[in-house]
Nucleic acid binder design. Structure first.
Lengths: 95, 95
DNA sequence: AGCTTATTTCGATAAGTGTCGAATTAAAAA
DNA sequence: TTTTTAATTCGACACTTATCGAAATAAGCT
């Protein structure tokens, strides 16, 4: 419950979000394509159901690792570089 | 099953090990004290049972994040800096 | 308004995780 | 060899997670 513990918990939470291969894949695609992605696109590219992708999108966004922008019916996902800079500088480059 | 997926899985596995606050704490203590730690020491410092600490030690070691050295009845844990260099350069400094 | 397209939520489920105390094993000391 | 000390393994447990299909919701179109 002290400051150190809170920091460790915070860090661990970031890592937990990143501890799922599909989420790493999503970030890799985002990083390399350098454009925003929709739920449907990821669903087709990774061959997982839209509901599962939506679940991962939510987790990434909730952790502050991504941003979301509405575009017609779709929602466009992009990397939130500030968060990575804060917790894992250089990580995105390694993808 | 392709090369990219395997890499993502590998990375995710590293993150999974780090997604537990007690394990982060262990690494922080190791990093700051700059000396090896025993299971019992960590158990007392973090107030968790020896069996739980042993479980975390095993996870860290299995992921290649730490090294182990036998010393009398105890086992001394130290950081495996090569692995961090490979997957998360600069991370240890941020602890 | 009704239709289409995209995303999200809602069960349900199978698998995995962190924790403990008790029992076991390993190593050293007496 | 017995005793002590340290670490590990073994259930058991409550909790979380990733996944899906079906149903619900949201936003444009016609």
């Amino acid at each position: 419950m002290d400051i150190e513990q809170r920091t460790d918990q915070e860090l661990a939470d970031i890592f937990k979000v990143l501890s799922e291969p599909n989420r790493i894949s999503i970030l890799r695609i985002l990083q390399h394509s350098n454009r925003e992605l929709t739920c449907g696109e990821v669903s087709r590219q990774l061959n997982i159901s839209p509901s599962t992708v939506s679940y991962h999108f939510k987790a990434l966004r909730k952790a502050g690792l991504t941003n979301t922008r509405q575009m017609a019916q779709a929602k466009l996902l992009s990397i939130n570089r500030e968060t990575f800079q804060k917790y894992l500088p250089n990580f995105l480059d390694s993808l």
